[in-house]
């Protein structure tokens, strides 16, 4: 799925990206068998300065997609172009150089910081690795970064365990922006944080985006956070994109039954609305990404398939993989895309 915005230039272009994890057969001699198709052919582009939200439930492949586009995982297939240059499969010195432009913020703000290093060392690591000495020296730069992300620069010599979860995430962000990258993949950066702290970190990310001209790919499961931060949103299910659209459009008028089900499941902190609301419930469990369902991967749980389609229409869902079709500003991978019968929010 590619959306091209002629008015703004594309920083990242991903075509048919695949990431399969090998599995092996049982038996005395173990042969390679069907792989886990964590990411199975996604295409999209990210424009300079925008935020692309990647949303889906656990196991949909969104984190793998984020890591693969940064070459933290080697893609099985497809291509990744950064600023027009093919970076698929780069490694060694080229990859290290690329890291000055592409960074990542991780979910677990504790697990991603070495507990035996001081904050100063952690935030300075990108300079050490790249052999870059900023003007004024590393320490001064690190301290100004710490200040920028809302940490006390005097805490330079403290260790991660002396900080709260929100502060640790700020450390991770300082490290990510240290080299002034152009693109940052944020992998569930606020889902481990309390609500009040979540908002602080989201605001910080937005401020930094304006200040440093950053482009974000924001991976999260929380649809409210995704709506707040993203310009465009891609909804993922079982390794594939179900729907991609501009944020307002996607939330106001979701066309894919999966997007509709997701949105209708978000609890709303408003009892009167909540009591009136109808939910589109998904039946059953997420199918295995080793043997995804034939045809449309969502058909086994699709409420529209179950309730609205005729026998012949269903046949199409079970046999034919839906191609991405453009409906208005949406790109939808559904044979029978269309508005939901009820208000989903």
């Amino acid at each position: 799925m590619t959306t091209t915005h002629p008015e703004s230039d594309v920083i990242l272009e991903v075509k048919d990206l695949q990431k399969h994890f090998p599995t092996r057969t049982s038996g005395i001699i173990r042969r390679a068998s069907d792989p886990v198709k964590a990411v199975d052919g996604i295409s999209f582009s990210v424009n300079r300065g925008e935020t692309l939200g990647l949303v889906g439930e656990s196991g949909c492949g969104k984190s793998t997609a984020g890591r693969t586009m940064l070459q933290l995982l080697e893609p099985t297939g497809g291509s990744i172009h950064y600023n027009g240059r093919d970076i698929t499969g780069v490694h060694g010195a080229d990859l290290r150089k690329l890291r000055t432009e592409m960074q990542m913020v991780f979910q677990d703000p504790y697990g991603s910081l070495n507990p035996r290093q001081t904050i100063g060392t952690i935030v300075a690591a990108p300079f050490d690795i790249q052999g870059i000495t900023p003007d004024g020296g590393v320490k001064a730069e690190v301290q100004s970064l710490m200040e920028r992300v809302g940490l006390n620069p005097e805490h330079y010599n403290r260790y991660p365990h002396e900080f709260s979860g929100g502060q640790r995430q700020r450390i991770g962000i300082a490290r990510a922006v240290a080299l002034r990258p152009k693109l940052i993949v944020c992998d569930e950066p606020v889902s481990a944080l309390d609500v009040s702290i979540q908002a602080q970190v989201v605001n910080l990310l937005e401020d930094l985006q304006t200040e440093y001209d950053l482009t974000y790919v924001f991976v999260a499961h929380d649809l409210s956070v995704i709506r707040h931060i993203s310009d465009r949103v891609a909804v993922m299910y079982l390794g594939k994109f179900m729907e991609v659209a501009d944020r307002d459009e996607l939330y106001a008028n979701p066309l894919h039954p999966y997007t509709q089900a997701l949105l209708s499941a978000v609890p709303i902190p408003d009892p009167r609305k909540e009591n009136k609301r109808e939910r589109i419930l998904l039946k059953g469990d997420l199918p295995s990404p080793i043997n995804p369902p034939s045809g449309c991967v969502f058909h086994t749980r699709c409420p529209r398939f179950r309730e609205e389609l005729s026998e012949t229409e269903r046949k199409r869902c079970t046999t034919e993989i839906p191609l991405v079709q453009k409906i208005g500003n949406h790109e939808v991978a559904c044979h029978f895309a269309g508005a939901a019968k009820i208000d989903v929010i």
């Binding site: 609500v195 908002a199 709506r227 944020r247 939330y251 709303i268």
Partner: peptide
């Protein structure tokens, strides 16, 4: 502080 999908999106949390 929580972003809400049932309301107008705020520019800032």
């Amino acid at each position: 502080s929580m972003p809400r999908i049932d309301r107008e999106r705020l520019d800032r949390l």
